[in-house]
Design a protein around this nucleic acid. Structure first.
Length: 861
DNA sequence: GAGCACTGC
C-alpha cells in the first residue's frame, strides 16, 4: 500500500524555514538518510564502569575473626537461639551437615537436591557461615545465595537472622532491586539472581566472593540458566570459589553432568503424605456426569469431536484414541460414560465444582486450593460456587480468587486461618505453585493445565496458550496439600494423561524472545552471542537467537559486526527491554523525560490496572478516561500515574487507586523504578540532576511529541491501520492481520485519526493480539521510525524492509529526507556526547520536527 | 465478535 503524504505549502514553508535556521547545518546532503543511527553510532566505546563488589570485605584481620567467633558462640547460649536450634535439628538437612561441609571443602562444585521442607535453603548457607566463623575465617568469607524471587530472598534472610538471634542486615542480609538490608558486617547475602547478573557487569570475576549458592535451579528460569553458563566459564579462573547448586530432586543429574560430574548430595523431604486421585477415581467418588460438548452430533461423540477439532495436543489425542471400556473395566458405567465424554481440550467447570462439593461434604476440615489456568476460569467458577451455593449456608465458605492481576492479590485473608467451621476455598493460577504458599491447605484440586508462554521463532511471535503441565509441576501442586497435615490431591485428568506428561517444563530460555538476554551477553563481554548460548544446558533455537540479534541491529544497538554501538552501550546500563530502554533514552533526549520515565516503568513492571472480578465495566471505563482521546494505552498509563502522584501529595493515593482500579503496590514500584532510571540516566550523562526537572521536560505535555518518542522506542513494532468501510483492520509485517486486545483503550474504536499504531507487546492467545497500542502519524514514523529507504521507483520512501511505502511531491520528499538526516546527525552526536544540550545545538531541527508533528492531523481525516 | 500465566534487573 502506497501512502501519500500531503503537506500544505504553509507547513512546508514553516518546517523548511525552521530547519534552515538551525546552527551550521546549511550544507546538508539530502540523500543521506541511510547515514542514520546504526552507522553513525559505531565509534568510541562508552566505558562500562567498575564498582564495588556485592560484599565489601575488610581485609581479613585476626581480631575480627575472633570477634565474630566469640559473638556467634555467645549467641548460641541464649534461650532464643537454643530453641531455634532445637527446631533446626529436626530438619532433614541437619543430619547431613558434616557430610555437606566436607563435600564443600573437597569440591569446587556441589549439587544438592532436596524436596520442599528439607531445609536446604535456610540451613545450607547457614552451615557454611557458621563453619567459616568458627574456623576463624569469618572476616574474609563472603557467601552469596541467589533466589529467583524477591520475596524468598527477603524471607529466607529474615528467617536465618532470627535463627542466629540477630537483626536482619547484620551478618545475614539481602539485596533485591530497589531494596536492601545489609551492612559492612554482612557475610551471607541473599539476592535475586537478577541482582547478581547485574553485579557481574562491574565485577565479572566475582572478586572476593568465597561461596556462591544458586537456589531453585530446577525451575530452569532464564536468569538461572544464564548464570550457570557464566559460572561454567568462570570457575577455572576462580579456583578458590565454591559453587553449590540447589535443586529439587527431579533433575539433579543434569546439573551434575554440566559441571563435569560434580558430586551430588540428596536430602530427603519433610512434608506430610498426600493421597492422590485421578479423574477416574474422582468420577467414581462424585458420580459426576460429564456431558460431551458434541452430544448433538450423530453417532459416536468422540469421533464427532475429533472431526470438529482439527489440531489437538498429543496427550488429549492419546486418551481419545484409548479403549475406555477395556481400560476401565472395573469402573462403573457412569464413570466410563463420563470418561468417553471427557475432553482434554476443554475444562469442565461443573466437574471442578462437583469435586469441591464432594470434599466439603465428605472430607474433614481444611482449606481447598484449586489450580486453574486463568482469569476466566477463576471468574466462572467463583460465580458458580456463589450461585449454586451447594451447602446452603454461604457463611460456611470463604471463596477467594488468587490471580496476579486481581485486586485481592495482597489481601491477608488468603493466608489467614478462617474462623472455625468456615472452609477456605482458594481459586488460583500457577501463582500458588511456587510464589505464594498457603500453609493450611489440605486439599488440592488440580485441573492439570497452565497458561504457558512459548516462542514461535518462524513468525517472531510470543504465544500464551493453556497446555498440560509437567510431571514436576503436578508433583509441586500436589505437595501444596501436605504442609501442615496429611492431605489429598484430586487430579481432574486421567492417570494415563499424567503418565504421558513431559517430565519437566521446557526451560524458559527456549520459550521466550531473547533480545534482552543477547544485550546482556554483549555487556558482559562474553564473546559471540550464538557461541555463548550454544554452551547452555539446553541451547535455544538458533533462529530465536538470530531474530534477537536482528532486532538489536534494527534498533541500532548492535552494528553489522554484532558489536555494541554507543546506543547499545547505553541500553546495557538500563535494566529494561532494549526497545523500552531506547524509548527512555529518546524521551530524555527530546525533552519528554517525565513521560518517558513513567511509561518505561509501567511497561517494564506489571500492568498497574487491576482486573476485578465483578466490576469489569467500571475498570474499563476508568482506564479509558485516563486515555481521553489520545488513542493510546501508554498515555492512559502516564495519566494514571500523574493522577496518582497528585493524589499522593494530598494523601489520597489509597482512595485514588481504589476508585480507578489501580494497584497501590504497583504504583509505588513504578515510582521507585522511575527514580532508579533517573539515577542511571544521570550516571551515563543524559541527565544532570542539579538542573532540576524543568530542564528535561519542555515537551512533556506535548502529546504529539510523546507519541513520537514512543514510536522511536517501540519501532519496529508497527501496525498499519487500514480502513474497511466503517471499521478499521490492523496488519503487521510479520504475521499479517492482528487484533487490538479487548482490554486496550483502542478496542472497539472503529476509526482512528492516524494511520499507524506502535505497540510494546504482541501475543498470540485465542487470536493474535496487540496488547497495548498508541496511534501515531506518518510524520512520527518518518522522523523517528526506521531508516528511510528510497523506493525503487524513485518517487517515494520505504520503511520496515519495504513493508511501508510513502509517496509525496519531490519538494516534500526532499524536505522530509533533509530533516530526518539532520535529526539523525543530531541524535548521534547527542548519544556520543550525552551532555550536549540539544535545545541549543539542535534548536532549529527540533523545532522543525515539532512543527511537522503538530501538523499531522491535516492529512488523514 | 472478543479477554487479561508467572518471575526479574
Amino acid at each position: 500500500m502506497q501512502k501519500e503524504i500531503k503537506m500544505s505549502t504553509e507547513i512546508e514553508k514553516r518546517v523548511g524555514n525552521l530547519l534552515n535556521s538551525s546552527n551550521g547545518t546549511s550544507s546538508v546532503e539530502t540523500g543521506s538518510s541511510r547515514s542514520s543511527e546504526t552507522e553513525a553510532l559505531q565509534s568510541k566505546p562508552v566505558e562500562i564502569g567498575r564498582g564495588a563488589s556485592l560484599l565489601e570485605i575488610d581485609t581479613a584481620s585476626e581480631g575480627l575473626n575472633m570477634e565474630l567467633k566469640q559473638k556467634q558462640e555467645k549467641m548460641r547460649e541464649t534461650d532464643n537461639v537454643k530453641a531455634m536450634l532445637e527446631f533446626r535439628e529436626k530438619l532433614p538437612a541437619f543430619k547431613l551437615k558434616s557430610e555437606f561441609l566436607k563435600a564443600v571443602a573437597a569440591n569446587q562444585v556441589l549439587v544438592v537436591s532436596g524436596e520442599t521442607g528439607c531445609g536446604k535453603t535456610t540451613q545450607l548457607p547457614q552451615f557454611i557461615l557458621e563453619n567459616e566463623i568458627s574456623s576463624l575465617r569469618g572476616a574474609s568469607c563472603s557467601i552469596i545465595c541467589t533466589q529467583p524471587r524477591r520475596i524468598s530472598a527477603i524471607s529466607v534472610a529474615a528467617r536465618i537472622s532470627s535463627e542466629r538471634g540477630e537483626k536482619l542486615g547484620e551478618t545475614v542480609g539481602y539485596q533485591i532491586r530497589l531494596e536492601s538490608k545489609r551492612s559492612a558486617q554482612t557475610r551471607l547475602l541473599f539476592c535475586t539472581t537478577g541482582v547478581l547478573l547485574r553485579q557481574l557487569v562491574q565485577d565479572p570475576d566475582l572478586t572476593g566472593i568465597t561461596h556462591l549458592l544458586v537456589d531453585e535451579i530446577h525451575e530452569r528460569g532464564m536468569n538461572e540458566d544464564f548464570l550457570l553458563i557464566i559460572l561454567h566459564d568462570l570457575l577455572p579462573r576462580r579456583p578458590d570459589l565454591r559453587l553449590i547448586l540447589m535443586s529439587a530432586t527431579i533433575n539433579a543429574d543434569l546439573f551434575s553432568k554440566y559441571f563435569g560430574n560434580a558430586p551430588t548430595i540428596h536430602i530427603p523431604g519433610f512434608t506430610f503424605p498426600v493421597k492422590e486421585f485421578y479423574l477416574e477415581n474422582v468420577l467414581e467418588k462424585t458420580r459426576y456426569n460429564i456431558q460431551s460438548e458434541f452430544e448433538n452430533f450423530r453417532g459416536n461423540s468422540r469421533r464427532g469431536r475429533r472431526q470438529q477439532e482439527s489440531r489437538k495436543d498429543p496427550l488429549t489425542e492419546l486418551f481419545e484414541d484409548a479403549d475406555i471400556d477395556a481400560l476401565f473395566k472395573g469402573y462403573s458405567t457412569s464413570t466410563r460414560r463420563s470418561l468417553e465424554a471427557w475432553s482434554g481440550s476443554q475444562l469442565d467447570l461443573g466437574l471442578v465444582e462437583s469435586t469441591v462439593e464432594y470434599i466439603c461434604r465428605h472430607e474433614g476440615s481444611g482449606a481447598i486450593l484449586v489450580f486453574l489456568t486463568g482469569w476466566d476460569d477463576i471468574s466462572k467458577l467463583h460465580d458458580k460456587l456463589k450461585v449454586n451455593n451447594f451447602l446452603g449456608d454461604t457463611n460456611k465458605f470463604l471463596v477467594l480468587p488468587l490471580h496476579g492481576s486481581m485486586p485481592t492479590i495482597n489481601q491477608r485473608e488468603i493466608f489467614d486461618r478462617p474462623p472455625p467451621n468456615v472452609r477456605k476455598i482458594v481459586l488460583a493460577t500457577n501463582i500458588a505453585e511456587s510464589s505464594i504458599t498457603i500453609d493450611d491447605v489440605v486439599y488440592v484440586v488440580d485441573c492439570g493445565k497452565a497458561k504457558e508462554t512459548s516462542y514461535d521463532a518462524l513468525n517472531k511471535l510470543a504465544c500464551l496458550l493453556p497446555s498440560w503441565i509437567s510431571k514436576a509441576s503436578a508433583h509441586q501442586r500436589r505437595g501444596r496439600a501436605g504442609r501442615v497435615q496429611p492431605g489429598v490431591c484430586y487430579r481432574l485428568y486421567p492417570k494415563m494423561i499424567h503418565d504421558a506428561m513431559p517430565q519437566y517444563q521446557l526451560p524458559e530460555m527456549l520459550r521466550t524472545p531473547l533480545q534482552e538476554l543477547c544485550l546482556h551477553i554483549k555487556s558482559l563481554q562474553l564473546g559471540a552471542i550464538s557461541m555463548f548460548l550454544a554452551k547452555a544446558l539446553q541451547p535455544p533455537d538458533p533462529l530465536s537467537v538470530e531474530n534477537a540479534i536482528e532486532l538489536l541491529k534494527t534498533i541500532g544497538a548492535l552494528d553489522d559486526r554484532e558489536e555494541l554501538t554507543p546506543l547499545g552501550r547505553h541500553l546495557c546500563t538500563l535494566p529494561l527491554d532494549p526497545n523500552i530502554g531506547k524509548m527512555l533514552l529518546m524521551g530524555s533526549i527530546f525533552q519528554c523525560l517525565n513521560p518517558a520515565l513513567t511509561i518505561a516503568a509501567a511497561l517494564a513492571h506489571r500492568d498497574p490496572f487491576v482486573l476485578p472480578l465483578n466490576r469489569k465495566e467500571e475498570a474499563d471505563a476508568a482506564k479509558r478516561s485516563f486515555a481521553g482521546d489520545s488513542c493510546s494505552d501508554h498515555i492512559a498509563l502516564l495519566k494514571a500515574f500523574e493522577g496518582w502522584k497528585d493524589a499522593k501529595r494530598n494523601r489520597k493515593d489509597r482512595t485514588f487507586c481504589w476508585e480507578n482500579f489501580l494497584s497501590p503496590v504497583t504504583m509505588q514500584m513504578m515510582e521507585d523504578m522511575r527514580n532508579q532510571f533517573l539515577d542511571l540516566l544521570s550516571g551515563i550523562g543524559f541527565v544532570d540532576k542539579s538542573q532540576g526537572p524543568k530542564a528535561y521536560n519542555q515537551y512533556s505535555d506535548d502529546l504529539e511529541m510523546v507519541c513520537a518518542i514512543l514510536c522511536a522506542g517501540l519501532y519496529p513494532n508497527v501496525v498499519q491501520c487500514k480502513r474497511r468501510g466503517k471499521r478499521t483492520a490492523f496488519y503487521t509485517k510479520e504475521v499479517g492481520k492482528v487484533d487490538i486486545h479487548p482490554a486496550s483503550v483502542n478496542a472497539g474504536v472503529h476509526l482512528f485519526p492516524l494511520p499507524y499504531m506502535v505497540y510494546s507487546e504482541k501475543v498470540k492467545t485465542s487470536s493474535i493480539y496487540i496488547r497495548d497500542s498508541t496511534n501515531i502519524s506518518d510524520y512520527a514514523l518518518l522522523m523517528f521510525g526506521g531508516n528511510l529507504i528510497p523506493s525503487k521507483s524513485g518517487d517515494g520512501i520505504e520503511m520496515l524492509g519495504g513493508y511501508l511505502h510513502f509517496s509525496a511531491s519531490k519538494t516534500v520528499l526532499d524536505l522530509i529526507r533533509k530533516l530526518r538526516g539532520e535529526l539523525d546527525k543530531l541524535l548521534s552526536r547527542k548519544i556520543e556526547e550525552p551532555g550536549l544540550d540539544i535545545t541549543v545545538e539542535g534548536k532549529g531541527v527540533v523545532a522543525a520536527v515539532v512543527e511537522l508533528l503538530h501538523s499531522q492531523d491535516v492529512h488523514y481525516r
